[in-house]
Amino acid sequence: MADLLAIGNWVLPLLYLALLADYGATFFLRTRTGARSPWLVVAVAAHLAFLVLRGVHVGYPPVANAREIASILALATAGVYAWVELASRDRRTGVFVVLLAFLFQYTSSMLLAGRAAEPAEIAPGAVGMWARLHVVPALVAYTALAFAGVYGLLYLLEHRGLRRHRFGVLFDRLPPLEVLDPMAWHALLTGFVAMTVAIAAGPLLLRAEGGEMTAKVLSKIIAGSAAWVVCAVAVLGRWLGRWPASRTSAIAVVGFLVVMALLIVSGLLS
């Protein structure tokens, strides 16, 4: 089992790298833009199997620290994108999302190198019911925000191309605004709802586990709150203020970058 997990730890980033090449070919060569990729489903299934096996082997759900969470984020990103691709039948944006999944998984595999079969140090309060109610929605929210950031960026690139009449190589390959806008919008909505749940469960988790307000916990609270504010501002602005898609997309992109920076700081503190 230990050998299998060690191999799996390195096979997963390679699998995502191969997918990245496949989606890169679709994007740059404009081939098979509408075809759904069976390899994406294979990668997601393999990743899920790896996490289940590792969870069984180490005796706890592998969401106990930043290293393991990075892998979960990779799986969530790939899994959510697989669903989006299945629904939209358009794989032109896959290269950007798979790039994210690859980076998450590569980071996780690097940090777990040589220790894939060993239990990692469990962060305080990382297991238990409140933990699940907090961690799972938080991961969904961060993944959704990543999606919103990616699709928001693509929207802005195309919007800018149309406004300034700069029709470059990238412009030719982007899906229409009417496809990108709902993707970013639904991701923001998902992020808003999920982060609201995560934030509501956070204090209960802290109290249940008797945890202290350390610098690490504080940085997580700041990152989570920032993500919630980003999603809330964009969602409410669009609902109540009738903001245009370009503005909510810009907020999603900036918000994603800020939250990523805060999460990295949080990771360094852990």
């Binding site: 149309l162 412009f171 229409p176």
Partner: peptide, 19 residues
């Protein structure tokens, strides 16, 4: 590849906005 007339360019631009 790409539009080669004003009419086709109009369609091309429309396809970048509308699905």
């Amino acid at each position: 590849a790409g539009s080669a007339s004003v009419a086709a360019a109009a369609v091309d631009l429309a396809r970048h906005i509308f699905s």
